[in-house]
Computed example of a mutant assay.
Amino acid sequence: MLDSVIQITLFMVALALALNLWRLCLGPSLPDRILALDTMYINSIALLVLFGMYERNNLYFEAALLVAVMGFVGTVALSKYLLRGDIIE
């Protein structure tokens, strides 16, 4: 029962990831694209966690933590670049 729910949820999160990719490519402004990229990080974390639950493997949880850290750093860097035009002062 839980495996079928995880499979359905994996499909739904993958669909959300595809829609975020669409927003990233066609976003009307740069802040919309940065927000779509940030949401893609969150959806990829959800995919890794769900796949780790489905496979019953702890390695995917560690990968999700790495993606979370890199996503945070990337979002901060892009936001700083958007506001100031320079990442490092």
Rank of each mutant, 00 (worst) to 15 (best):
D3A: 13
D3L: 11
V5F: 15
I6M: 09
Q7I: 11
I8T: 12
F11V: 08
F11D: 01
F11W: 12
M12C: 13
M12K: 07
M12R: 06
V13N: 03
A14I: 02
A16Y: 08
L17V: 05
A18L: 15
A18N: 03
L19G: 01
L19W: 07
L21T: 09
L21D: 00
W22M: 10
L24W: 02
L24Y: 04
L26P: 00
L26R: 11
G27S: 01
G27E: 00
P28N: 10
P28T: 10
P28A: 13
L30W: 14
P31Q: 04
D32I: 06
L35S: 11
L35N: 07
A36F: 03
D38I: 05
M40V: 01
Y41S: 12
N43T: 02
I45W: 00
A46E: 01
A46P: 03
L47T: 04
L47K: 04
L48Y: 09
L48D: 04
V49W: 08
L50E: 05
F51G: 02
F51E: 03
F51H: 09
F51C: 06
G52S: 08
R56C: 03
N57G: 00
N58L: 12
Y60A: 03
Y60G: 01
F61M: 12
E62M: 10
E62G: 08
A63V: 14
A64S: 15
V67Y: 02
A68K: 06
V69D: 01
V69I: 15
M70T: 13
M70P: 03
M70Q: 09
G71C: 00
G71W: 00
G71P: 01
V73F: 15
V73E: 01
G74E: 02
T75P: 04
V76N: 05
V76D: 03
A77R: 01
A77S: 05
L78K: 09
L78Q: 09
S79D: 07
K80R: 15
L82T: 08
R84T: 07
I87T: 13
I88K: 14
E89S: 14
E89Q: 14
E89Y: 11
